[in-house]
Structures are given as structure tokens and as C-alpha cells.
Design a protein around this nucleic acid. Sequence first.
DNA 1: TCTACTTGCTTCGACTTCGAAGCACAACCG
DNA 2: CGGTTGTGCTTCGAAGTCGAAGCAAGTAGA
Lengths: 199, 199
Amino acid sequence: MTGLDSDTGTNGVHGLAPQQLDAYFALMEAVSLLQHHVERHLRTEGNLSYVQFQLLARLSAARGQLTMTQLADGVVYSRSGLTYQAGLLEKGGLITRGPSPDDERATLVAITEAGRALFDRVLPGHIRVVRGMLFDPLTGDDLRHLGDIMTRVRDHMRAQPPRSAAPRRRRPASAAPASLPATTGRALTGKTRPGAEAR
Amino acid sequence: MTGLDSDTGTNGVHGLAPQQLDAYFALMEAVSLLQHHVERHLRTEGNLSYVQFQLLARLSAARGQLTMTQLADGVVYSRSGLTYQAGLLEKGGLITRGPSPDDERATLVAITEAGRALFDRVLPGHIRVVRGMLFDPLTGDDLRHLGDIMTRVRDHMRAQPPRSAAPRRRRPASAAPASLPATTGRALTGKTRPGAEAR
DNA sequence: TCTACTTGCTTCGACTTCGAAGCACAACCG
DNA sequence: CGGTTGTGCTTCGAAGTCGAAGCAAGTAGA
């Protein structure tokens, strides 16, 4: 089922043991499923998207206020996307955005009473869903392991240059990645701009 | 950091131990990070999105052809979204879509030579990224656990009514979910249609 | 077999998401 | 100081994503 490799009959395809592949695929698939369920729940009960929920969670946990960047990084999200979502949340009266006294450029975000109320209202159900989906089939030992493992993995990943770290080259002079020969997989995804790579 | 609850000072908020919450958040965050990295890699090397990669993987592993629904379910994806992506992949010559002899409604999807070639070309790099991000900080024992745990979780989730199972009520007579009092969290996300819930 | 219901897929419209580009302030450095 | 570079956020345009609605083929029952 998880196949992909198990089916090709090859062992240790390209240097990865099938066991690893299986773990990887199971992980991604499970999380994907979990996220869908959670999202559905949050939507019906509270009219929130998962990102919005996460934002409220962060803000709720944060002592005072957070800058947009802190928030975006915390949630693994694009900055522009955050601007959009923050706009919605603000319009909904769940958060406030204001200037920072320290840094004129920064925008400080804080959760409102309504936001906290809503968050508190959905949290129990959220947890219920997560428990039903994720924790039900796990023993306490599994759980301990999972937490330990994923924490380590996350920290490891966090160590890598974070999402927003990519320095914005001011002058794209010779910055083109130009890594791949771009042989087989040319077009696709329509991501190629009209002009680029005349077909 | 993972806070949200650790900060509120409460223990076992709403019946979930902080340990569970931590595991949950670490899990989601790690996968989120992983996915971003993977996506970036696939995009630069092969011009594929993660979904497209997954689709190719499924099709590559599949002996013969798969129907759209099988494919969508396998990848945890909306049907309409699949139609869109399949269109792109087909236009790119990586897959083919054709009618099914058994069921006139069904569409059978198969991977082409080019598709298989591209997939084989990206796979090694993909694996390299995953290994660097996910497996590096793990021991063989961790890996075994992770695979075991996530497989169990996934199967558990799969048991729940699958994404596409929601029966399309033909007559919305009295089908309104009508579960929540819809108190605090009304509008937001602009998801509310112009007409619904006059403001 | 005619009619209703189910099921597979696509179309449609609305929303979300992202990266690139832009704007404004901050931080250096001579 | 004045210029250059870096940083925080938003705007903009292009895609991607989803659910609802629609179409057509299967299926069940009278």
C-alpha cells in the first residue's frame, strides 16, 4: 500500500531502506489525514482555519505581543500569507495589530478578549478530535516516543535556515539557481511564466 | 515554545496531558517544515509540486492504472483538485487519462515513460532531502518506532470515513449540521457567503 | 423498462497561498 | 551626515485548493 518502492522490488532504493520510506510515507499521510479532520472540525465549530487556530494559539500562549515575523516563523507560514490571515482575524475582532514603539517598521499583534474566548471555546473540541484520531491507537509509551522523536526532529529542522531567512538578493545579477539541466521535466504546473521557455 | 498550554499554567487542559499536546504540536510543526523543504527541492529539481510527486509515486508503484478516485483517496486530496493536477500532469506528458472499459464513467490514469523517467530522476534527491531533514537526528530504533507508530495511526485514521465518503445529500431538506450555537466566532475568513447571516 | 438514487468525474466560483516586487524604517560605514 | 545595505511588512499577480453544483453512466426496484 505504502509501496512506491516496496513494489519495485528494489531494496534500499537509492540508499534508503524501505523501512525508512515506509515510515516517511506513513508519517506524511497520517498527518495529512489528521489535518483534514482537524480542519473540518475547526471550520464547523468556530469557523476557523487551521492556520488561524494556530495563530490564536501562539498569541494566546505568548505573554504579550508578537511581531508578524515571529508569528509567521512560529507557524511555518509565508509572510504574505500571514498578512492576509492577520487581516481576516483583525477584521473578525480576534486580534489587534499596532505599531511597535521600538521598531517603527514592526507590527505588533495581540489577541483580543474575543479571540481568547473563541480559542478557549474551540480548544476542547479540537483536542477531542486529535485524541480520537492520533492518540487513540497509541500507548503511553508510544506517545512518549513520538513526542521525543518529533521534538528532536523539529529542533533539527529548525536549525536549518528558517523559511524566512532566504536573503532577498537585491540584485539578481547572476543569482539564477541554474542548478539543473532541466531536461525531462520542463513545463508543468504552469508555473512557467508566459514568456519564459518558449514552447 | 510549543506552549499554548504550558503557558496557561493549567495541567491537563481539557483532559489532555501537556505531554500529548507537545507531541502533537511537534509532530505538526516538523511535518510542516519537512514538507516545505521537500517542496522546494521538488520544485527546483523537476518542477513538481509535492502533490504531483505523490501522484507520480502512486502511479509508479501501481501495477497498472488507477481511477481518479483511487488516486485521490490514496493521496488525501480533493477530487476537484486532482482533476486539476491530473490535467497539468497530462499536459506535461507525464501521465495519460483514458476511459475505463468496465465503467464508462471512470477515468483510468497511467504514468507514461516520461513520467516514470522524471520520477526516477527526482527520487534520489528527494530521498536525500528527507534523510537530511528527518532521519539524520534519528537512531535506527527511533525509526522503527516512528514507522510502527505512524503506520498504526494512519490505519486508524483510514478506518474513519474517508474524505470522499461524505454522501452527497441530494436533498438538503433538514440536513443542516446545526450543531453549534454559533455564538462568538461568527464571521471570519470571509467564508460566509454574502447572503448568509445578514450582518 | 421506466424512474429514482448512487457514483465518477469535471466545471465553477470563491478563497487561500505564495513569491516577487515595493515601501518605509533601521543599521552601518565612509 | 549621506549613501548603501538589511529588515519588517504589505501589495500584487498567478496558481493552487476546495466544496457545491452539474453531467453522465451505473444500479435498484416497481
